[in-house]
């Protein structure tokens, strides 16, 4: 691992200032993904700003009737929170579908959104990867691509975003609140937060250098049956081949967001409108622009069938 200096930030302003003064600094919260990538020297920050003491670990109601989740709320605590369990069951279910008990105790809400892809070629520093080393090529295209994205891909990258929680938050239209290095604040709808790879797959979110997430806001609860179904190679502690977060109302209308198929949680609002017509009609719009390889073509059928199972469960 490359050497780095370490500081514990005492305030949001101090953290933002420290980040602004060093372009090679990174924030560290739970560190479950960052440490792993630093060991492999895929991430090589020269300075770490520990933001765990900033008091961003609270879950509070908003004046609109929603919920503001501090950036540093641990996955375990968010999944177990009484109001999340009652009003946003999809978030609890998705979080509990991810990682292990140990990892959920460390991993944070903001860190979950910012985790990097688990594409094996991104991790293998012996092979080209446009995300790790821009311009070097994509080893997944033409390589072992069974787990890779089937929509929203580019000729530079077919990596997926690995988060379960983000899939649920996309279905619920969460809003991400940030603080920039100059201290100014903004709110970004989760739909606009993660980027598609295009020809710059190394840029994964709209965050600017030094900008950090202070909270994630869930809008007022929308009720409905909230179902998170994750299809994976083993029953627990594995990344999704395909996952679907759904909110289905009594009249059959609803909204869905899909994981394991794209560089970001995949939701197409026009596809939501097809839900009363069934899984096939919905999936055909969701994946209208699918671009598959021989190895990951199965995900197209898997999305439709997983959706079919969810619709049946919601009716039952």
């Amino acid at each position: 691992m490359r050497a780095f200096t370490y500081e514990r930030a005492s305030s949001i302003e101090a953290a933002a200032k420290a980040a602004a003064s060093n372009p090679e600094a990174k924030f560290i919260a739970g560190g479950t993904n960052l440490l792993d990538l630093m060991k492999l020297e895929i991430e090589t920050p020269t300075h770490l700003i520990d933001i765990n003491s900033l008091g961003l670990d609270k879950i509070e109601p908003t004046s609109e009737g929603g919920l503001r989740i501090g950036a540093l709320v641990r996955n375990t605590d968010l999944a177990a929170h009484e109001r999340v369990r009652r009003d946003y069951g999809l978030v609890s279910r998705a979080l509990l579908a991810g990682a292990s008990g140990q990892l959920r105790n460390k991993a944070t809400t903001a860190g979950n959104l910012l985790q990097r892809t688990r594409c094996p070629y991104f991790y293998d520093t012996n092979q080209p990867c446009n995300k790790r080393q821009p311009g070097s090529g994509c080893s997944a295209i033409g390589g072992f691509s069974r787990q890779h994205a089937i929509t929203g891909t580019s000729e530079a990258c077919i990596a997926t975003h690995a988060s379960d929680m983000a899939v649920a938050m996309r279905a619920l239209d969460a809003v991400i609140e940030t603080v920039k290095a100059d201290g100014s604040r903004r709110s970004v709808p989760i739909a606009d937060f993660h980027r598609l790879p295009g020809d710059t797959p190394e840029i994964e979110t709209v965050l600017e250098r030094g900008e950090f997430i202070s909270a994630v806001v869930l809008p007022p609860p929308i009720g409905g049956r909230q179902i998170y179904r994750k299809v994976r190679d083993r029953a627990s502690y594995a990344f999704a081949l395909v996952s679907i977060g759904a909110v289905i109302q009594l009249d059959g209308t609803g909204r869905i967001s899909v994981g394991g198929v794209a560089h970001k949680p995949w939701r197409i609002e026009q596809a939501d409108a097809e839900l009363p017509q069934g899984a096939r009609a919905t999936a055909s719009i969701l994946l209208a622009d699918a671009h598959t390889t021989e190895q990951n073509r199965f995900k197209v059928d898997l999305v439709e069938r997983t959706l079919g199972a969810i619709i049946a469960e919601a009716r039952g």
Binding site: Y6, I28, G31, L35, G101, Q102, N105, K106
Partner: peptide, 10 residues
């Protein structure tokens, strides 16, 4: 009292 992976902790 809470379990974590010591390998992923500084």
């Amino acid at each position: 009292g809470e379990r974590i992976n010591a390998c992923l902790a500084f």
